[in-house]
Design a protein around this nucleic acid. Structure first.
Length: 208
DNA sequence: TGTGGGATTCGCT
DNA sequence: GCGAATCCCACAA
């Protein structure tokens, strides 16, 4: 298991190149409640500065997306739909904007804690594979907070381990983003084929 | 200072 | 399958 650090190795390049290497990586987050770790199974690339209309940084740097320009290995969180938080891993060198949205993962540590966080006061049952299946679900399960925007993912309370051996992966077009049907047809999404934690409706974009 | 829209999820049908 | 919930941020005035 190799520990990569920000500013070095694979994280000094674009999200499109980092994506396959982040699949299978384990992201761990520790709080007073305990630790939860997820094995990343699905990511989506975003590139700013006029390249990708779907990116928050398409129109350049703003106060909101400043973290995306802050160097590789940092956490970019944002609030959306009035109720959800999503988490990204910044991949580009300082001054450049490129990141990976964590779309899905498998909880490999702290299943009980993750279940409590996801079920809330209702205490309803949640299938283990659904604990971190979906960007906002993954954030809830790991206990990542909006206020942790900008955190170094290679330092406590976080820890990011890349896999010694890269798992096989598949790519596909983006869905769920306005403007996704535009002229750009990069394979923005990357996932581990056959993994049950990958969003099912993303797994079969065209079921004809 | 006001306004419009969104990198989603859940529950009901 | 469909629609509601909900609030931060960017941008226009």
């Amino acid at each position: 298991m190799t520990l990569y650090r920000p500013g070095r190795d694979v994280f000094l390049t674009s999200a499109l190149e980092v994506a396959p290497k982040l699949l299978g990586a384990v992201l761990r987050h520790e709080t007073a409640e305990g630790a939860v770790a997820v094995r990343i199974t699905e990511v989506e690339a975003y590139i700013g500065d006029g390249v990708d209309p779907g990116s928050h940084s398409f129109r350049g740097r703003t106060k909101r997306n400043a973290v995306m320009y802050g160097g590789p290995g940092h956490l970019y969180t944002y609030f959306t739909y009035g109720m959800h938080v999503c988490a990204n891993v910044v991949c580009s060198p300082e001054g450049v904007s490129s990141a990976l949205l964590l779309r899905a993962g498998e909880v490999v540590e702290g299943v009980d804690l993750a279940t409590r966080r996801r079920s809330g006061p209702s205490g309803r049952a949640i299938p283990e594979r659904d604990l971190a299946r979906g960007p906002a679900r993954l954030v809830v399960a790991t206990g990542i907070l909006l206020s942790e925007n900008g955190s170094d993912l290679f330092a406590p309370p976080f820890d990011l381990h890349l896999p010694a051996v890269q798992p096989p992966y598949e790519t596909g077009p983006r869905t769920g983003v306005s403007g996704a049907g535009g002229s750009l047809t990069f394979p923005w999404r990357f996932w581990i084929p056959g993994d049950p934690t990958v969003s099912p409706y993303k797994r079969h974009p065209k079921s004809h």
